[in-house]
């Protein structure tokens, strides 16, 4: 069987009571925890400084509190995407043809955890901070595309879920035989469709050069975001692909009490 860094935890007998198919569960829970701290931290930052220094982009305080945060976010995202995608690619399994059913099952669980982390980021970007954008622009006139909520939503949350979705795609492509042989259409739709939401920011901000209030949140200028998020329904296809393969793999396992 091929041995990669992915399998090292399996080689050492796991004595921490976590079943072999859930070996990545602690990392998954840590991922949830880290993301929760980041998102709540950003929301608390908004609560502390948005009204104080985020109403007028020409004020020096805006540069200090908001544009500096924007630059920090970009730096963190560049480092994260380089490190994560680089790790996933360079640690790829080059001997997928000799993968055991047990290891493949474990990797399907890890892929599901990756997609789950991706959907958690989609929650913050698509639900909380997206609607919060309406709340903010109903009380604050926008005089820049870098408003106190956009700096979080458009330039951090959107790229972050794209990076996490891309990580799930790369994980599947580099570690699971079926995803390596062919490109999964539903997984690609579920990752690249919402990526187009990030691209729609350009259309949205161009439109808002004509309308600097938030007159109408359901206006057609926002529908680029809507079409992008429909592609998240591709997760149904990923589930079907995963369940079909898992049934085959589980049937190959020996019965154990």
């Amino acid at each position: 069987m091929a041995t990669t860094s992915e399998q090292l935890p399996l080689l050492a007998e796991n004595d921490n009571k976590v079943p072999w198919y859930l070996l990545d569960l602690p990392r998954y829970l840590k991922g949830f925890g880290i993301l929760t701290v980041i998102y709540i931290g950003l929301r608390l930052y908004q609560g502390a400084f948005a009204v104080l220094s985020g109403l007028d982009s020409t004020e020096p305080a805006f540069e200090q509190y908001w544009m500096r945060l924007f630059k920090i976010e970009l730096g963190v995202l560049v480092l994260f995407v380089t490190g994560m995608w680089g790790y996933l690619w360079f640690s790829r399994d080059r001997h997928l043809d000799t993968l055991s059913p047990r290891e493949e099952i474990r990797r399907y669980f890890t892929l599901t955890m990756w997609i789950s982390i991706y959907t958690f980021a989609v929650y913050w970007a698509g639900s909380y901070f997206a609607e919060q954008d309406n709340s903010w622009h109903q009380v604050a006139i926008r005089d820049t595309p870098f408003t106190a909520n956009h700096i979080i939503e458009f330039y951090f949350n959107f790229p972050l879920y794209v990076i996490l979705g891309g990580s799930a795609w790369l994980y599947a492509r580099t570690r699971l035989p079926l995803y390596a042989k062919g490109i999964s259409l539903p997984l690609t739709l579920a990752v690249f469709g919402p990526f187009m939401i990030l691209v729609s920011v350009g259309f949205n901000e161009w439109g808002h050069t004509f309308w600097f209030r938030e007159e109408f949140f359901a206006a057609p200028i926002h529908w680029g975001f809507v079409i992008g998020v429909w592609f998240a329904l591709g997760v149904g296809g990923i589930l079907l692909q995963g369940v079909t393969r898992l049934i085959e793999l589980i049937d190959e396992l020996e019965e154990k009490p």
Partner: peptide
């Protein structure tokens, strides 16, 4: 996975069409 997927995706669709 499904819980966060549908909160995030359905809510964005809903907020920008019914909003």
């Amino acid at each position: 996975l499904a819980l966060f997927l549908f909160i995030g995706s359905f809510h964005l669709h809903f907020a920008l069409t019914v909003g």
